[in-house]
Nucleic acid binder design. Sequence first.
RNA 1: GCGAGAGUGGCGGAACUGGCAGACGCGCCAGACUUAGGAUCUGGUGGGCGACCGUGGGGGUUCAAGUCCCCCCUCUCGCACCA
Length: 829
Amino acid sequence: MAGGAVLEERYNPKSVEERWRKAWQENRTFKVSEDLSKPKYYCLEMFPYPSGRIHMGHVRNYAIGDVVSRYKRMRGFNVLHPMGWDSFGLPAENAAIKHGIHPQKWTLENIAFMRDKQLKRLGLSYDWDREVTTCLEEYYRWNQWFFIKMYERGLAYKKLSYVNWCPSCATVLANEQVEAGLCWRCSSVVQHKELEQWFFKITAYAEELLSWCDKLTGWPERVLTMQRNWIGKSTGVEVDFAVEGTGDKLTIFTTRPDTLFGVTFMSIAPEHPMLESLIKGRPQAGEVRSFVQRVMSEDKAARTDEKQEKEGVFTGAYAVNPLNNEKVPVWVGNFVLMEYGTGAIMSVPAHDQRDFEFARKYGLPVRIVIQNPEKNLDAATMQQAYVEDGIEANSGNFNGLANSEAKERIADFVEQRKFGKRTVNWRLRDWGISRQRYWGTPIPIIYCEKCGAVPVPEKDLPVRLPMNVELTGRGRSPLAEARSFTEAACPKCGGKARRETDTMDTFVDSSWYFLRYCSPREDSAPFAKKAAAYWMSVDQYIGGIEHAVLHLLYARFFTKVIRDLGLFDGDEPFVNLLTQGMVIKDGAKMSKSKGNVVDPDFILNKYGADTARLFSLFAAPPERDLEWSDQGVDGAFRFLHRVWTLVYRHIEAVRGIKAAGVEARGDRLYRKTHVTIKKVTEDIEREFHFNTAIAALMEMVNEMYDYTSAGIASDKLPMLRSAIDSVTRLIAPFAPHFAEELWAALGNSTSIANASWPQHDPEAIVATEITIVVQVNGKVRSKLTVPAGTSDRELEVAALADAKVKEFTNGKTPRKVIVVQGKLVNVVV
RNA sequence: GCGAGAGUGGCGGAACUGGCAGACGCGCCAGACUUAGGAUCUGGUGGGCGACCGUGGGGGUUCAAGUCCCCCCUCUCGCACCA
């Protein structure tokens, strides 16, 4: 047996934790496999990037997940709780450039250190046999496999487009990776650049990704809101305006067809493909070109800044409004985005604030087409656009209709006359996955001079990332420099060809790793279908809010694609999501520059893992930010000490004693024990409120001290035994090494991880006597102790007879007496 | 501007469907044991001398409001020229 059957006098976390860490490893305590006889539970924490060291945020994240896993396990679930490494990515490459160490070596060394020297010390109940490392070919080959499957279905495609370019990372970024115009990783100003890129067609799933937001009831509302905003569905109408003098059509998108009669000009994006033909041969051409050039030279941050002055120039061209055959000027506007809608808009200054400002600035006409029913609008004097609902005016046959009604009627009219059609526009763009970097999954495409882009056949996978590549941090994709890599034969015709040298965005790796955990050593498929059918979906996913739209949206998308490939029978990857708060110190996020970082190793050395876990779970509920407090850690340590000392004192006396059963009902410690079991269980079940669960355990331990303060009679030993027994089980998910040690000392020879969770005795918690609060006019004046089950009538009589009540009612007759069953009496005078 | 969340002692935080505000912990104060205590144990600890007053501010509903309704303030996060 691994545990010491005799307790040492003083709690020594170091020796206790070492002993149990070893025991768990040797006994394979947390190894799991599919077992149809038990209900399954899949608990997952977002896997880390192997940066070299873990931080307090990791400790908190994994401690939360571990409590959930261990608790569910004790409740009889077959728990899958895996860990792995999101191990492709830029820092490895930067380390290579800076220190001349190969990214692979750097990464694998970091993983070994973080796994063996850091994570394993935390006592986390992982099945380490399921470890997944995304930078190994046994994993990334399946990224390539998915790419090819998606390519075959038209879900992966290449196109020339304007992309977000980070000059510092020297690579392209997805839209999701640009935050306020800055690179999400290094905060450089993102540039606009035209490049050929590979895309995943996430927009094909936009509707489904959106509609499922309503069904993910186990997700925090704010994450769903962010996803809904990001997907950004807007329904409207596309309308064709004929360009005067040419046969061309200028198509615009609008959500406000009810304002179509109020169009007084048009605006198009500087990148609009029709621009050249519009200005050709016109006197305005020169001015337009220099305007366009100036706007396009601005970086993305400046261009999309709301405070940016709205500017434009007249192209000299006119377009015809198909509804009233009116001629309106076409302008180029710096605020019109080519990526959204059609890159051209109709401008209705009377009813759109942007258009209004633009019209006033350039002296363009304003025409009211929706009248305010409260107060007549005047185009000449209005100070801002009228964007509320109202009645149609100046709108031909539609005059007099409510604008909400007119929206539909005008859209119908547009469709009947074939001026355009109803459409839906999405803010969501396809996911650009090409990265001009080395340390990632090679995109499995070969370019043949004759056949064009040809996917690498499945049998030739993986396309291995070559190891002998020089990394300079400059210029093009590092892979492009490696001739042995780029030279290839066309899989179709065998002719001379070259390989794609871009690698995939690392968010591809984390989009399906949760499926891989189900069967991590499977080598004929990304995962075994049967294993996934058993384990998926993830019952509880835990991680930071920072992935609210990035990873969590991509993973949902991949899951749906994988479903449609017939590999997995489910719609969503994560049933419940817990977004834990940050760990902060002195009111700010821990960061090197602020010098407020707490090193997990230091805490582990000084107090041990159980204290570190206990504190991070006790100091705040998981979804809130946690303020780190050195003194708070002392408090957690002290609590474990108190439990230890209590058990140490009585262990000899209770060793051979049988725990108390129902015959002990009525004993105050027995009652407290069962109240605590109920409270701890409910707090874990209800939103994982570990802080109050731990508080309840502390209360119980205080009660145990009190119970035993004057020594203990032998007839009370069964109650003490059952209390110690229960506390040990209840504390096990929080402080597992500690609990194992006590558990062994109590004479158990199997791990407490496999012990059952205690169940409370409902009869035991029914009090025989209850305290009733007595109020006079809503203010607490007295308390009554009465037998449970005293009737309302008796309570009222007792309250009115109370001396204090008489004093405060001062002889007046009560106007009303309110009795709340078992709680309170309020006398109103 | 839009959306989400929050505001409670000196501090972190409790208070499930309206029913003793401040559980539990930290800190602080006092005492015990001690050569000693930054160890441990015991007790106390919202404010005010008091009637009383206290959950960001102001109204309201109710026998009763941290909790429900209306108005306002502050903070955090996300989105933000999306046509």
